[in-house]
Nucleic acid binder design. Sequence first.
DNA 1: ATTTTGACTATGT
DNA 2: AACATAGCCAAAA
Length: 112
Amino acid sequence: MTPFTEAVIAIITNIPEGKVMTYGQIARGAGSPRGARQVVRILHSMSTKYKLPWYRVVNAQGEIAIQEDEGSSLQRMYLEGEGVEFTGNKIDLDIYRYHLEPAGHYESGMPN
DNA sequence: ATTTTGACTATGT
DNA sequence: AACATAGCCAAAA
């Protein structure tokens, strides 16, 4: 198990309900900026074994990346069940994207 | 060893 | 907004 794989699993596991992340975003967070397709493979092979919320992962356009015969309607059902709203066949990432906690994010403008 | 294959993305029309 | 193209990179063939 590579560090990258472990990081990907950890990140996906931590996506909260009602939020989504993109493949590329996960890859970057796991330390491989061009590893979106590797994230796909990991999901493909580990999603059941590690009980990952695979359905909270969408492409960079906010669309479900799989085909109907692969379970796209199930994915949409899961997401809508968590309150994620679709506009057409897309999700508004400005609203539903989950941002990983950046390194330093303590209040910068906290009045004292 | 080389080629093909994706649940992808950024970029340019 | 929708489509094409070129990168991408590990696993499978």
